[in-house]
């Protein structure tokens, strides 16, 4: 384990770690921050910090465990300082994030939303209430448990159930719609010189 903290002096090793872990750390950061760009910033800063301060850092466990823990800490700090928690539900229904993009995408999203909404209707009432609170009111498991007078463990189990139902109810068609949406967003991001 000691060896790893010494080896990090090597520029190439940092690059290797970056390529090996950036994607998984980015997804983890995204789950915490719910924003792709913020997640990218955070994981980049985790690696920058690892590079700049590595002599002062004592990596007690594996480099991998360090990277996950550091990503978690950086995300929590960011949530605290920027108060990025917003009401997703209103944005989801108002669709404001997509008003500037093409007409075609709007249509697809509308279709998608209907299907997703009906998929969510398949979730039993009690379970759905918990799912909505977590997903759209952005409440923590702890907050939901307290509010409903149930244990955190029950919230975990109900969320698992909601996820399973969503996955079974949403048809293959929906995934294609999602993929199309992604493609569209990506194309819109391309510099205009490429058009």
């Amino acid at each position: 384990m000691e060896r790893e903290s010494e080896l990090i002096n090597d520029h190439h090793l940092l690059e290797q770690y970056f390529h090996e872990y950036f994607e998984v750390l980015h997804r983890y950061a995204y789950t915490l921050l719910k924003d792709n760009d913020d997640a990218k910033d955070v994981v980049q800063s985790v690696f920058t910090q690892l590079w700049q301060k590595r002599e002062a850092l004592t990596i007690r466990q594996s480099a991998r465990a360090y990277l996950y823990a550091a990503t978690h800490n950086h995300c929590l700090n960011r949530i605290k300082s920027e108060k990025i928690r917003q009401n997703h539900h209103s944005r989801f229904t108002a669709n404001e994030d997509y008003t500037t993009t093409g007409e075609q995408e709007q249509l697809t999203l509308k279709d998608l939303k209907k299907e997703v909404l009906s998929a969510m209707d398949a979730i039993p009432e009690k379970c759905r209430e918990i799912f909505y609170k977590s997903r759209f009111e952005e409440k923590s498991y702890q907050e939901i448990a307290k509010e409903l007078g149930i244990s955190v463990k029950t919230v975990e189990a109900q969320m698992g159930k909601a996820l399973r139902i969503l996955r079974t109810t949403l048809s293959g068609k929906t995934y294609w719609l999602i993929i199309c949406c992604h493609l569209f967003t990506e194309i819109n991001k391309l510099p205009h010189s490429l058009w």
Binding site: F18, E23, L166
Partner: peptide, 27 residues
């Protein structure tokens, strides 16, 4: 994917080489 379908800002796969390039040169 099912989870992301209920998201206004779904997760997008990051461009790892671009993210690495963006960090160069290392301070």
């Amino acid at each position: 994917n099912a989870w992301n379908a209920t998201s206004a800002k779904p997760h997008q796969q990051p461009d790892v080489p671009a993210a690495w390039q963006q960090m160069q040169p290392l301070a």
